[in-house]
């Protein structure tokens, strides 16, 4: 093997930057979280675990944890399943797959902030095309389909659609109503994320050898569903693991849509962690509590990745 001192100059810049930019800040956040330090103050005192106690007892932060968990637990499974379904459907098409792929991938590429504003207008109670579309459909086929009148147990009087039509077009306010805001934010999250998952699943599907399907057929797996259970799903194990991990980490970091659309409201129903850090530490300059949230946030993410990489990974290799 070659001997030279070159590696020192090759490796050290990266090592120094890793330490200063990625590792040091974690310890800094840890340190600040046990003080009452605020940016701009010249002195600070150690306050022990006070910031953490605040975090786990005050209503605001409990709401923060609830809305973050809601967002992650909705967006991850829905966008992963939608991505998988879209990939399988596209993979079995004989023409047109490329067009759908481009369209479904557009939200991944487009600047999320711009798209959030576009959604804001789309869902606007008076200017938006969604509510005007719903209002124009009162008494027609849209009311029948979207009001679930085709389900035997939904009577046409008390479906949400008919009630709204009867009450002077009282359709949901989406982002402005505390009952619907978080779900609307989740919907935008899924809208943005599923195309990315679809592309990863498409790559995963092409790597499954055709022979496996023939073999499964020989073994009596005739229906598409049985073949999916026997071949596709297990073979996609590593892809699924990766897709779930990356979607989870990204969902934990949701910020753009919240800041532009709801600012954590109404009634803190969309008060997710990244927004809490931003609001407390940057806007209100309460650095110490922001640091405590940061620490909890980092622990969440590191535990999650460790769990997925080292525990589940053992089970998904076939």
């Amino acid at each position: 093997m070659h001997h030279s001192k070159a590696h020192i100059w090759f490796v050290w810049p990266a090592i120094i930057l890793m330490i200063v930019i990625l590792i040091l800040p974690i310890f800094l956040a840890g340190g600040i979280s046990f003080t009452n330090y605020n940016l701009g103050n010249s002195s600070f005192e150690w306050v022990g675990t006070e910031n953490y106690e605040k975090m786990f007892s005050r209503k605001t932060y409990i709401k923060m944890i609830i809305s973050t968990a809601t967002y992650v637990l909705i967006v991850v499974p829905v966008s992963v399943v939608l991505g998988l379904v879209a990939a399988i459907m596209l993979n079995s098409l004989r023409f047109g797959a490329d067009i759908y792929k481009t369209i479904f991938f557009l939200p991944v590429m487009a600047t999320l902030l711009a798209m959030a504003i576009a959604w804001e207008f789309t869902l606007h109670p008076t200017l938006g095309i969604i509510n005007s579309y719903l209002a124009n459909g009162c008494g027609g086929i849209r009311e029948f389909i979207l009001g679930f009148h085709w389900l035997p147990w939904v009577s046409s009087e008390d479906s949400w659609y008919s009630v709204a039509c009867a009450n002077n077009m009282d359709f949901p306010y989406w982002l402005k109503d505390k009952k619907t805001a978080i779900w609307t934010i989740c919907f935008i999250g899924v809208w943005q994320a599923f195309g990315f998952n679809m592309v990863l699943y498409l790559a995963g599907l092409t790597s499954i050898p055709r022979e496996l399907y023939h073999a499964a057929e020989m073994d009596g797996a005739q229906s598409t569903w049985e073949q999916f259970k026997l071949v596709t799903w297990p073979m996609l194990g590593p892809t699924t693991l990766f897709v779930v991990t990356i979607t989870t980490i990204r969902s934990f970091q949701v910020f753009d849509t919240i800041e532009i659309l709801t600012k954590g409201g109404p009634a803190k129903t969309t008060y997710v962690m990244m927004y809490a850090i931003f609001e407390k530490a940057i806007q209100q300059n309460i650095t110490s509590i922001g640091a405590a949230i940061t620490v909890v946030f980092i622990i969440f993410i590191i535990l999650l990745t460790f769990f997925q990489r080292y525990v589940i990974e053992k089970r998904v290799h076939y």
Binding site: I15, L22, L24, P25, A29, I282, I298
Partner: peptide
């Protein structure tokens, strides 16, 4: 060094934005 790289892969820069901001400030 390689295991350090693997560890740092776990850290999303957005998550440590606040301490980084303090340092830059």
């Amino acid at each position: 060094v390689f295991s350090m790289v693997l560890f740092c892969l776990l850290i999303p820069v957005h998550a440590i934005a606040l301490p980084l901001y303090v340092m830059l400030a």
